[in-house]
Design a binder for these strands. Structure first.
Length: 426
RNA sequence: GGGCGGUUACCCAAGUGGCCAACGGGGACUGACUGUAAAUCAGUUGGAGACACUCCUUCGGAGGUUCGAAUCCUUCACCGCCCA
């Protein structure tokens, strides 16, 4: 790594905008840098990885990263990038979430470093005890409403029907105060974030300049987009989370594996620490033999290993090969339960399969594959249902004892990729 | 506090007494084609059944008018704009 961190980030396409002077500062000194994370759930999702991994990159270049859990600001709700007013979470809930998220940060950041260990802070620690009169007098005085109204996040909301509450309007003041606080207490001189945070970040820079007469800096990352214009980080089941209880390692692995050709090289740059030549080679592979999907495999492998560990990766990879490789009927009971350990499952009493068997439509509802019998019937008509990887095409199909694998499993599949394991008991 | 406008399915949005389980678009799901990709094309998108037919529940909530209401009336809640 002979080049600078700023050049590194630029090469990876991660510098969307920055305040002049950032490059020089990062080259000349080891700075403390912070990035805020909203705590609207008890887990981060893949959308959080870009700023998180950027912090990790900065750390590798010797800078001091602070991951700030927005325990205080989440109570207010950031209007940036939101179409409508957000419902507020109970204070206690936010605290619990912030705790849960701390553990996930450790997958990326090094807290043990002797020279520049990462820190996790929660802005609830200083925001919740603020005195309103003092805040308005000392902080609020530094901002004109005109300035605040000019911010994108505010303006777009004013143009919409829903409007913008005073609470949300003040959000930028609180985030600015965070920057001031971290500057005062930790010597923090750089704030990073997604490009939607530009307004909030520059407001903080402005506040420090006015109150401390010091120049601090901001840098924002591009919003991750997909080539087809849809939102990054969502799949059938909603967001892709880092918490294995919310998104299993298998699904996590599959999420990355399914990345489009057009996006995969960008993602390798954004999300991995792979060296430039390695990424260049993979980029070439995408062009020359796209069907091999080497870049996607590498991406999925690296991400799964980072977040869930090597063991989980091995299992996810093995499961993927078995499920998409072909015949599953030759697998042993042990292999099946291993491969499907991540996949949704349900239990079914054996008695239901006896005699005439259980209508497949009912089985789909019981297994949670379909929400209603109508939906189940529809899926069957569409030819989208498979039992043990064989399409169900009968008129009024029923599942019987003969459909069990190894005497205890039935593998249901809807469409190409949605598996559910039925465990026959009793 | 006053005036006006609004609340329809996952989202946007039509419909303003019967032809409405409700136009259209987006999204999502399934299929064909493929490389577990994209693009394209086709189908599906409230529930139940004896499933080319019937029944039930839905248009912010509750009541009412009517043979019949998403549509009219009353009232409550929420949202927006304007005035104070």
């Amino acid at each position: 790594m002979s080049h600078s961190i700023f050049e590194e980030l630029q090469w990876r396409g991660m510098v969307y905008d920055s305040i002049d002077g950032v490059q020089q500062m990062l080259a000349n000194e080891k700075v403390t840098v912070y990035n805020g994370f909203d705590v609207t759930a008890d887990s981060l999702h893949v959308g959080h990885i870009v700023p998180l991994i950027a912090l990790a990159r900065l750390q590798r270049f010797g800078h001091h990263p602070i991951a700030l859990a927005g325990g205080g600001t989440t109570m207010i709700g950031d209007p940036s990038g939101k179409k409508s007013e957000r419902s507020l979470l109970p204070v206690e809930t936010i605290r619990e979430y912030a705790e849960a998220i701390k553990g996930q940060l450790a997958h990326f950041l090094d807290f043990e470093s002797k020279t520049n260990p990462a820190k996790v802070l929660n802005n609830a620690d200083w925001l919740t005890s603020l005195n309103m009169i003092e805040f308005m007098r000392d902080i609020g005085k530094n901002f004109t409403v005109n300035y605040m109204l000019a911010k994108d996040s505010v303006r777009t909301r004013l143009e919409r029907e829903e409007g913008l509450s005073f609470t949300e309007f003040t959000y930028m003041l609180l985030q600015s105060y965070d920057f001031l606080y971290l500057y005062d207490h930790y010597g923090c001189r750089l704030q990073t974030g997604g490009s939607d945070q530009w307004g909030n970040i520059t407001a903080g820079v402005e506040l420090v300049r006015r109150m401390r007469a010091e120049q601090v800096y901001g840098m924002v990352y591009p919003l991750i987009t997909k080539a087809d214009g849809t939102k990054f980080g969502k799949t059938e089941g909603g967001s892709v989370w880092l918490d294995p209880k919310r998104t299993s390692p298998y699904r996590f692995y599959q999420f990355w594996l399914n990345t489009e050709d057009k996006d995969v090289v960008n993602y390798l740059k954004y999300f991995t620490f792979l060296e430039h030549p390695v990424i260049d080679d993979l980029a070439a592979a995408v062009v020359e033999r796209p069907e091999a999907r080497e870049a996607q495999r590498k991406l999925a492998g690296v991400m799964t290993a980072t977040v869930h560990g090597e063991t989980a990766l091995a299992r996810a990879d093995q499961a993927s090969q078995a499920l998409f490789g072909g015949d599953i009927s030759g697998l042993s009971a042990a292999e099946i339960s291993d491969i499907f350990s991540d996949v949704p499952s349900c239990e079914l009493p054996k008695t239901q399969l006896e005699g005439a068997g259980l209508p497949v439509a009912d089985l789909l509802v019981t297994a949670g594959v379909a929400k209603s019998k109508g939906e189940a019937r529809r899926s069957l008509q569409e030819g989208g249902i498979y039992i043990n990887n064989h399409r169900v095409s009968a008129e009024n199909p029923a599942a019987g004892l003969g459909d069990m694998l190894e005497g205890q499993f039935i593998v249901l599949r809807k469409g190409k990729k949605n598996y559910t394991l039925v465990k026959v008991i009793g």
